[in-house]
Every structure is written in C-alpha cells, then in structure tokens.
Design a protein around this nucleic acid. Structure first.
Length: 376
DNA sequence: AAATAGTCCAACCGCACGATA
DNA sequence: ATATCGTGCGGTTGGACTATT
C-alpha cells in the first residue's frame, strides 16, 4: 500500500503560524467547516499543507480548547489514565474536556514523567523502581492482573473515542464542525453514555470501590478515613481541589513519612500471600467481573473474554457517575461511603488491597510531593 | 552582561488504519 | 483484492523563553 505525500511540499510554508494565517483558517472553517483538509489550504488561501492546517486547528484554534495550567485534578486524571492506557494520548484526552492530546502529551513529558521519575516511580510501568519495597512474585502477578484490566479498559476507551469521532463526523453544519459549544466539542461528544471527565474519574472511583473498602481498615488506620477526606487539599497552592477517592482521599498525609508508605507496600506483600494461598487459579478479571456482575445483577453479561466484562464495567461506571444511583451499595461520591458488598463466595480482599494500594501509592506520592516543594 | 543550561510547547514527521474507488 | 486517499496518532524536533552561573 503506497503512501502519497500529504501535500506537495514545494512552496508550502512551514513553521509557526502567523496571526494572519490563523485568521484565514478560522474564517474559512467558520464559514465552510473544514471539509477535506487536503483541499482546505487552497480554498482558504493558505500556503500550508492540509495536515498543518488540521494540526493548527485541532491543537490551537479550535474554540473549545482550554489553555493554561493543568489543575491538580487534571494531573491526577492524566496519571491515572496513563497508568491504565499508556501513551494513548487521544484516549486520555477524551476524558479531559478542552485539553488536546498534544497538550497532554507535552505536559506528561515535561512535568509528570519527570515528577514520577524523581519519586522513584517508573513512568512507563507506574511501578516503584525500588524492587526491595515489593514482593517480587506478588507484584508481578498483581501487575499482570492489572494489566489485563487495563487492556479491557483501554479497549473500551478506544471504542468510546471512536464513537466520539463518529459523532463528530455526523455534525454536518459548519457551526457544528466548529465545535461551537463545549458540550458538542470533539473532546466531549454529545452522545449518550459518552465519556466525560466525570465518568473518567468515576472509573477510578468505581475501581476504588470495587477493589474493596475493607482495605481502609487495614491501611488507613481509621476505617472511615476516606470519609473524612473525600477531597485532596493541596497546600502549596492554597487551593482545595476536589479529588477522587481513588487517588487516596488521604492524599495529604499517608506518605508523609517513608514508613507509612513502606507499610502499605508491605501490606501488599502480605495480602498477596493471602491471596495466593486462599485462591488457587486467582484471576483479577474474573474477580472484578464477579464483583461487577454482582452489582449489576443482570446475569446476561457474564464476562470473561468477551465484551461482558467491559460492558459490565462500563455500566457500573456509568451508573456510578449518574446522579441517581440505582445500584445497591454502590456510591462513589466522596460524600457517602457505603460499604461495597463483596461478591458472594469470593474472598477478594487480598487482591483488592494489592490493586488499591498500588494505585493509591502512586497518587499519594504525587500528592505528597506537591506539598514538598524541595523535591521539585 | 553574556554564556550556558533547562524548560516549554507548537509544529513537524512518518506510520497506521479505515474508507472508498 | 488492491491501490489510494484522508485522517488520526504518537514520537520527536526546534525555537522561544527563563533561570542559573
């Protein structure tokens, strides 16, 4: 399959865009929509290739782009989603309204990656680099299970992104193509069940929930610590950012000293041992799915392998993000913290502890680092 | 004040993939 | 079935800006 050049390079301008060029592009798209990007430059009177125009539009000129500093919440979301999805910037961007994949990518590369590295966390695997903190077998198994989950969630997010794309393409009028309103933007497609920042965070909240509340008693000393601290307070900025439980409602303190962090990692080992001993053939997906299935209680999405798991998980997330929560014992908003009923017949606390501790530690470290300026 | 290093980010590049002829 | 087109995506670059020496 041959690949033709995106444009005739001769005589076309490259490099930074001038205000005049921006104006031309904006004016043209406002009036006609972008249509075929390849044909656009000629029609718009621009000495650029279509690709350059498209990039300029999607990354800079589009009206629904939020510029400026990333909030702590956005940072957390990026870290969490990156842990799930890896460098799938477009998928991550789908869950960060008004942010472009390019912007997120840049922010990751220039800020977050370095921050994690400095904290001794591998920004690729999101694992602490210091293996002595971990039980090797337990960690590898946990990560393997987690990886399966991430693959499913990744597939789901990609599907959502695809839907968003299709939805965007369906917009025929120029004004719609402009993404004139925030709600109809390509980043936040106006489709039922489409991802939003809210649902993104709920993924993590739900995971937090699904992966066990009993954990609180073990690791946080106080069983209702999440209750006490549903939000993350960032003292360096003086701004109290809302946050997810997932990232450790205890963001501002659990890792203030190394011992407590170590404690959590040690607990991970311990709980893994319990898991390994008590659940032969343990499988993270089946565990979570059983849990999800128990909550959905619809019986027809019985999971493994096919879309059942993904759909159930999605349903769970969507239901948890909706204002009215019809699922029993599932409340993910920080304000309420009703204990999640464990799946019947499954002792999953160990695995849950492993996963939750793992993710909580990452974000705890990030949060605590934010309060520790000398680190950065 | 000049040189150097570091940071940031817009823009480019090339590959991949779906749609279509 | 194949070739081509159009576009999206992730990786990388280069220049502007800022901080430090």
């Amino acid at each position: 399959m041959g690949r033709s050049p995106c444009c005739d390079k001769v005589g076309l301008k490259k490099g930074p865009w001038t205000p005049e060029e921006d104006q031309k592009l904006l004016a043209y798209i406002e009036e006609h929509g972008h249509g075929s990007w390849r044909a656009l430059p000629t029609k718009a009177g621009l000495q650029r290739c279509g690709k350059s125009c498209r990039l300029r539009w999607t990354n800079y000129l589009r009206p629904d782009i939020k510029r400026g500093k990333f909030t702590v919440q956005e940072e957390q979301t990026i870290i969490q989603l990156h842990a799930l999805l890896g460098n799938r910037w477009s998928a991550i961007a789908t869950h960060l309204p008004k942010r472009t994949d390019n912007e997120i990518k840049n922010y990751w590369n220039t800020h977050l990656k370095k921050r994690l590295t400095k904290m001794g966390i591998d920004p690729v695997s999101h694992k602490p680099k210091n293996d002595t903190l971990l039980c090797n077998d337990g960690q590898s198994k946990t990560v393997a299970n987690l990886s399966h989950m991430a693959q499913w969630e990744s597939a789901r997010l990609e599907a959502e992104a695809r839907l968003a794309k299709q939805s965007r393409l369906r917009c025929s009028s120029p004004s719609e193509k402009m993404g004139g309103s925030v709600e109809s933007s390509s980043l936040t497609p106006p489709i039922v069940g489409a991802p939003t920042t809210r649902s993104c965070l709920d993924i993590l909240k739900a995971w937090n929930k699904v992966c066990g509340n009993k954990h609180n008693d073990i690791n946080y000393g106080s069983g209702n610590r999440d209750l006490e601290s549903p939000t993350s307070t960032v003292s360096t900025t003086g701004v109290k950012e809302s946050s997810t439980n997932f990232v450790g409602g205890n963001s501002s303190g659990s890792c203030d000293d190394g011992e407590e962090c170590d404690e959590q990692w040690e607990c991970k080992d311990e709980s893994h041992d319990q898991m390994a001993n008590s659940i032969p053939g343990f499988n993270g997906i089946s565990m979570l799915s059983a849990c999800i299935d128990d909550h959905n209680n619809n019986g027809n999405q019985h999971m493994l392998g096919g879309g059942g798991f993904v759909e159930s998980f999605t349903d769970l997330l969507l239901s948890s993000s909706s204002g009215t929560n019809n699922h029993r014992n599932l409340e993910v908003d920080g304000e309420s913290n009703v204990a999640l009923e464990p799946p019947t017949g499954v002792n999953n606390s160990c695995y849950e502890d492993n996963n939750k501790n793992y993710w909580n530690n990452i974000l705890d470290l990030v949060n605590s680092s934010l309060q520790d300026p000398p680190l950065f």
